[in-house]
Amino acid sequence: MLEARLVQGSMLRKVVDAVKDLVSDANIDVSSSGFSLQAMDTSHVSLIAMHLRADAFEHFRCDRPMSMGMSLANLAKVLKCAGSDDIVTLKANDDGDTVTFMFESPKEDRVSDFELKLMDIDSEHLGIPDTDYCATVTMPAGEYARICKDLSSIGDTVVISATKDGVKFTTSGDVGTANVTVRQNTTADKKEDQTIIDLKEPVALTFALRYLTSFAKATPLATHVTLSMTRELPVMVEYAIQDMGHLRFYLAPKIED
């Protein structure tokens, strides 16, 4: 059986809200190492990989690995019923066809439970190799969201190029062109305003802006986002889930016709 008690239950809602527009149904895999989710978006252009470590939970018991298939829209509906400070406990029996969510208020004066129906989902699991990235930029998550939003109003695709001068985001459309350059800034007073660029080799890749914009729905999860790029490979857009795990998005680049 599965029993998992998460004090910061709102983290679950933030994760589901970040991915539910890209993926409609997904398996949440549970094992002794924790919770993980891997799913491609419906167009098979991007891949979501989430992991919440078992030690992130105040109490975690998983007797044997299980895959819980669910509609993320329905899961979002359930999690929306939790208070923002509620403690969330998940319970499921081996081979059961439901999972129960219990929400407890911090003052322990309100307890509710919701049973969600599970479904069988066939999904391919992709192996993601460890990659030595040419360029890694860690920037404020809000800044990333703003760049995606601003550039989306001008064009559909963005060229992200990392050089010693910084990381430049370029788009063009009917209106004209737009460039935003982000430079390293490790002297900002507040740590959440800092930008760190680790460049091993210059790299430039082209991406569909609508996916990069969708990834920014994870902004409430973390102060920073990390973009990792290597030539001719998918970009990895990573949000840390505090010290509990991560939510990673991989997006395939566009190539010349």
Binding site: L126, T206, A208, K254, I255
Partner: peptide
């Protein structure tokens, strides 16, 4: 804008 590649073409199915 270039041709969009599938993400599955980069990562092998396990």
């Amino acid at each position: 804008g270039g041709k969009q590649r599938s993400i599955a073409s980069f990562f092998a199915v396990q």
